[in-house]
């Protein structure tokens, strides 16, 4: 056991940490804003609105994220028309491929969380909104979404943690995130225990921070539901 190699390579690990946080923050933001319209469509009674979203959610929840990343990074790159189009500027970079895959994936899961919450909006709230003469749009804006999003916080906290752990997959498409940095250290010194235990601690610390942040969020937004 030789942890001095970890100390020597801390700069590499912190660089990896930076990339992990970046990937996580951007994917979660994009995924969150995608998921709200998707959730509304998925909760809609209109088949034409609902079905395409259902298919999207089904595909992204039904396949492993690793496969989604491989298809987006290696798979799409084999098409010449894509490589010759201006889209290639985005798909050429492993960074953007990872962001696209992560964002779509978390959008699908998050949409499903929000859809469930929307459908479970208490009848009383809806009747009250209608009684106030709100149209559908106002109902969503002022009643359904604020209520549904609040009730989703605990489940969404889980999704954020899953997403953090899913970012390790960036390491398979040449990105040097936390896990990528650990793989480099491991391959340089053949020290799997030291390398992976160290990044494991990084992920633990990050997870703890996320859990704590969501506890604060719950305390703030779910005060009215406290027993």
């Amino acid at each position: 056991m030789d942890f001095s190699i970890i100390i020597d390579n801390l700069p590499l690990l912190f660089k990896g940490l930076g990339l992990t946080l970046q990937l996580l923050a951007i994917s979660l933001t994009v995924g969150f804003f995608l998921s709200i319209p998707l959730a509304i469509m998925a909760a809609s009674k209109n088949t034409w609105l609902r079905t395409p979203v259902k298919i999207f959610i089904y595909i992204f929840r039904g396949t492993p994220l690793l496969i989604q990343i491989f298809i987006i990074y290696y798979g799409l790159a084999q098409f010449e028309w894509l490589r010759e189009s201006s889209l290639w500027l985005i798909f050429k970079e492993a960074y953007w491929c990872a962001i696209i895959a992560f964002s779509l994936n978390t959008a699908a899961y998050t949409a499903e969380i929000f859809r469930g919450a929307i459908l479970q909006t208490p009848k009383g709230e809806l009747e009250a909104a209608e009684a106030c003469g709100m149209n559908r749009w106002d109902q969503y804006r002022h009643v359904i979404l604020p209520s549904a999003l609040r009730r989703s916080i605990p489940m969404y906290g889980n999704e954020v943690i899953f997403m953090l752990h899913a970012t390790v997959l960036a390491g398979v498409i040449t990105l040097v995130d936390l896990f990528g940095a650990a793989k480099i250290i491991n391959s340089r010194y053949y020290a799997p225990f030291e390398s992976f235990i160290s990044v494991g601690l990084f992920y633990l610390a990050l997870t703890f921070t996320i859990v704590f942040a969501f506890k604060l969020l719950e305390g703030h937004f779910l005060k009215h539901l406290k027993r």
């Binding site: 490589r83 040449t174 990528g180």
Partner: peptide, 18 residues
């Protein structure tokens, strides 16, 4: 330097022009 898990992935990215 871009590091790959397998040599085949390195070729894929050479082919793709990455």
């Amino acid at each position: 330097i871009k590091r790959y898990g397998t040599q085949e992935e390195a070729y894929l990215d050479l082919n793709a022009g990455r």
